[in-house]
Structures are given as C-alpha cells and as structure tokens.
Design a protein around this nucleic acid. Structure first.
Lengths: 190, 190
DNA sequence: GCTTGCATTTAACAAATGGTAAAAAGCGTT
DNA sequence: AACGCTTTTTACCATTTGTTAAATGCAAGC
C-alpha cells in the first residue's frame, strides 16, 4: 500500500530498504468520498497528504462569500496548506475531495520525527513541495489577463484528466467565473 | 552599504560579525532606472536581487502578446526567477525596474559558495524565499473571482506604497485589466 | 415507474470590461 | 513659454461576463 509513496520518493533520490521501512511505519492511509472535508478553513493544518488516487481541491471563500477552488491536486502530488503546516497559523484555505480519493497521510509530528532520523528526507520533501509551489504560481499567472474561454482552453490542455473528474462548478470557480458562464463557453466550443 | 542586507537577515537569525564579513565580500551593488531590464524573459537567471530601494516587477507576455506584471517586489524583499535560478532552465518571466531602484546582487555561484561556508545561510534564505512564495500565492488567489474594482481596492489596501510608485499601466496589467478600465475604476471611486 | 434532489444547460437582460481612438494632462528639455 | 514625449483620462460601441430564473438531465431511493 505505502510503496506507491516510497516509489515516488525514489524517483528523486534512492531510498534504501531500511529507510523505506522506517518511513512506512509513520504513514497512515485514508479513503475519502467526493465532497468530504479534509481540512476546514481556519483550522490548523497538521497533516500533509500524498494522493494515491483521486483529486483534492484547495478552497476558500472570497470576499463575496463564494467558495472558490484555488488548486486541484491529483495522483502523486502532495497536498497541504503549507503556511499553516509550517508556521502553526490558522489555514487560510480548506482542503476537500473533488472526487473520491485515496490518500497517504503524513502527520506533522511523525514527519518531523522522520526528518530527525533521515535528514535527507526533509530536503527531499521540501524541494518537491517548493517546486510544486513554483509550478502552481506559474499556472495561475498564465491566466492573468486572458478571457474566460482562453483560460478554460488552457486549463483543458494543462489538466485534461482533472477536467474530466471534477464538477463544472469546481472548474468555473477555479477559473474565476460562474458556472453559467462556463457552460456557455463549453457550448460555444462545440 | 551592505549592512542593510545583513541587518535584514539578522531579523531572522543572529549573524556573527565574522560571518557578516564573509557574506559582504560576495555581494555587489547595482542602481537601475525605471524601465531597465534586469533579466530578459527566456534567459537563464543567475542572480538573486535584494531590494534596498525601489520596486521591481516580474513580467511576462501572455498569449495575446500583452506584457503582464505578475508581481511587484519592494524594499527588503528578494527578487529572482526561482525556477530558473534553482533548476537552470530558461526563465518564463523577466525582471524589470518598475521605478528607480537600488539593489544588492547575489550571484548564483557566489551564493552557492556562501552556502558551503555557512550552511545555515542556505536554510535561512530558502525559508525566506519559500515564505515569500506562499505569500504571493495567497495574494493572487485572493483576487480569484473578484471583479476588477474589488481587486484594485484590495491591491490598494495591501500595497498602498507600491500603488503610489508604479505606473497605471503596470497596475492594470497586474490586475489583469486594461489601463483604460483601471482609469475608469479610479474615476468611479471618487 | 415515479418522485426527489442535485448538477448542468439555457435564456433574457443588466452590468462590467475590452478595443479603438482621441483628447487632456503631466513632465522634462530647450 | 514652447516643444516633444509619455502617461492618463474620456468617450464610443462591441463583446464578455454576471444575475436571475427556468428548463433539462440524471442518478438514488421509494
């Protein structure tokens, strides 16, 4: 079960079997259904998820009271609210399942313990999550100043698999438009 | 001249005078005028800037060919294209002076040398720049799904000093609208 | 088979924003 | 003060997007 995670880390750095055993002992596993809340906005984030299957969404209420999807995360990606996780402050965003999902859970305390035992693990996970941040920023920036239908087109090209697995209203909020607008855009594309 | 930088680092971690001397030896200094290009989009980013005075902008052409401002950086902030700097790939964004500015320049090779001599420096600068990434993402996300005048209002609240120092067209592109729209929004706010 | 609840589509109208062009204002130089 | 240059403001109309409301589709449970 946990070897998916070890194999993933192994893509970046060789993990000796003995270390793998140490890591696996600190992991837990969780299945969630579409819509399930993994972290409530405003709570402390004390977990990092590694997605084995499915899609999670990072969400937050904007000033108008609409819940927007900031990001979608899928298989082989980490999902956490890093600002809260790292700095022990309330999370400005929540985490929810955008479709049924299977996760590996890294509890903060256990992860810190692992960092003590295997110092290279800290550098490894930090560099993976930092690179993920850079990628997220780049995608978000690329939408800047494009109209909604162009944003949608680019979303389809970048994340075709996610487009098929999450709801229209999720995608609309991710693109910063209403679901009616997105439905209209879809129609015009046919 | 360089003590501004050392003092800034000192806010996060005590820097012994001997270390400060080692660091200062690797720094250089640069003055730029408004509009000056510090890094061309597509080039390798081999420098990290620390802003002593002024405002820099991170820019990139979008699909329509308009140059958009992704971020503004000001005094006591680092400015670099991290994806290029870290991974030796061409920068997807450029760096320009949004107004006259004074910078401290950290050349990549010299910085890596410092990281060897003073390992804590790597962790320190990495954590500062990572936190800056988190902050940038949070601001960008907060604009999602808000109309242009609300984005402008929030920009004014978040970065009132920058609003006074950069051009209207810069702010407009940062907000993802045309300068005419921003001018109209300003008028409606009076 | 028939509700029921939920997601998606459609429609009509209002509001916001873009595109274009021109005028006005600001600014440094002479 | 006059000039050239850039930035900002205005105005017009076309397009996009939001708002509201209703219709449709679809799956779960009765």
């Amino acid at each position: 079960m946990y070897d998916v995670f070890i194999n993933f880390l192994g893509l970046f750095k060789n993990i000796p079997p003995t270390d793998a055993a140490i890591i696996e002992k600190e992991l837990s596993h969780r299945k969630v259904m579409e819509g399930e809340v993994l972290l409530e906005e405003g709570q402390l984030c004390k977990e990092m998820f590694f997605i084995c299957k499915g899609v999670l969404r990072i969400v937050s209420q904007n000033e108008k009271g609409n819940k927007m999807a900031y990001f979608f995360l899928k298989e082989n990606q980490f999902c956490s609210i890093l600002n809260s996780f790292n700095n022990n402050v309330p999370a400005a965003e929540g985490i929810e399942a955008a479709c049924d999902a299977e996760l590996i859970v890294l509890k903060k305390q256990k992860l810190l313990g692992l960092y003590e035992k295997l110092p290279y693990l800290k550098e490894l996970i930090t560099s993976i999550t930092t690179q993920a941040l850079l990628d997220k920023i780049q995608v978000r920036n690329s939408y800047l100043g494009e109209d909604a239908s162009l944003r949608y087109r680019n979303f389809l090209m970048r994340q075709p698999d996610i487009a098929l697995r999450v709801s229209l209203s999720d995608i609309a909020s991710y693109l910063g438009i209403t679901q009616q607008s997105l439905s209209r855009i879809r129609k015009n594309m046919r």
